[in-house]
Simulated assay, not measured.
Amino acid sequence: MRIAFLGLGRMGSGMATRLAQSGDHTLTVWNRTADKAQRFTELGASIAKDPIEAVRDAEVVITSLLDDQSVEALFHEGSEVLKALPPTAIHLCVTTISPDCANRLQDLHAANGSRYVSGPVIGRPDASAAGKLVQFLAGDTSAIKVVSPICHAFAEQVMPLSVRDAGVANSQKLCINFFVASLIEVMGECFTLGEKLGVPRQNLAFFLDKSLPLPGLKVYVERLFKRETDSTTGFTMTAGRKDLGLMLRAAAAVDCDIDIATIIAEKMDIAISQGMQNLDWSATQEITRQRAGLLN
């Protein structure tokens, strides 16, 4: 198929690379910072000078951007990008956006004659590059049937949801990210309490590692145990804080308290104020340690 891929950040570049390497599609890429797109010429992809050029002949447009604002800056009523979409084209958004934004995009495309699918993914950038993501799909049923085979290039599990509202896929992603963030927070507190009580960190790491079956969760046991805060292959504090904001707003909209999310968001704000914005989001453990008087 003719695919336009918009957004080549840490997650997007891995997904776009997998699509290019599959050899099954004609791929055009675009990124706000043009130099990130240059290497895709070596993979046989075309580089568009702007998103309008990228989508003009596309059957499927995939957006991997930052947030609600970055997606809706391209796709809104009367936008040139929306006008450039061919009839019946499909917009697959893999960005972590709010459920409300997803539903707005669904309505926008329905009115335009195009189709929309929310396809948020679970996994870190290394899983994206390895094609090991988990993905949820919700939105236009006919479009989901079209994009599902495409998604297997970068996701080992593709889960269509039998719901009408596209935003449910984003709600599911937020619930899972809430669980992961909460688990990181609890493990960080566990390591800190153990250290204060004289418990060897390696003993706690052994127990936590044996308690968690998923490799993606075991990564955080090792990171927290070793206090590895580099985010080169992970999720930055800034990105994590954005997701916490989405979780808290979604919960408030349905009158559901998620108290631990408030605690994590507060620690992330402190971490960012201390210059940790580009560290892995699990570096909130360092704030827990500071509060406990562990300053090294």
Rank of each mutant, 00 (worst) to 15 (best):
R2E: 12
M11D: 03
S13I: 00
S13W: 04
G14A: 06
L19W: 03
Q21L: 13
Q21C: 10
T28M: 05
R32Y: 01
D35Y: 07
R39Q: 11
T41Q: 14
T41M: 03
E42I: 12
G44Y: 09
K49A: 15
A54S: 07
A54Y: 04
A73G: 14
G78K: 07
L92E: 04
C93F: 05
V94T: 15
T95H: 02
I97V: 15
S98M: 07
S98H: 07
P99L: 07
N103G: 08
R104F: 08
Q106D: 13
H109G: 06
H109I: 00
V117S: 06
I122S: 11
A127I: 08
Q135A: 13
F136W: 09
F136N: 05
D140Y: 03
S148T: 14
C151A: 15
A153Q: 12
Q157N: 13
Q157T: 12
R164K: 15
D165C: 00
A166K: 03
L174E: 04
V180H: 09
E195H: 10
P200T: 01
L204C: 05
A205E: 07
L208M: 15
S211M: 13
G216N: 14
V219L: 13
R227F: 01
T233H: 06
G234K: 02
M237E: 11
G240C: 04
G240D: 01
K242M: 09
D243T: 05
L248R: 12
R249F: 02
R249P: 00
A253Y: 01
A261K: 03
A265Q: 12
A265I: 00
K267N: 11
I272L: 09
Q277R: 07
N278Y: 04
T284E: 09
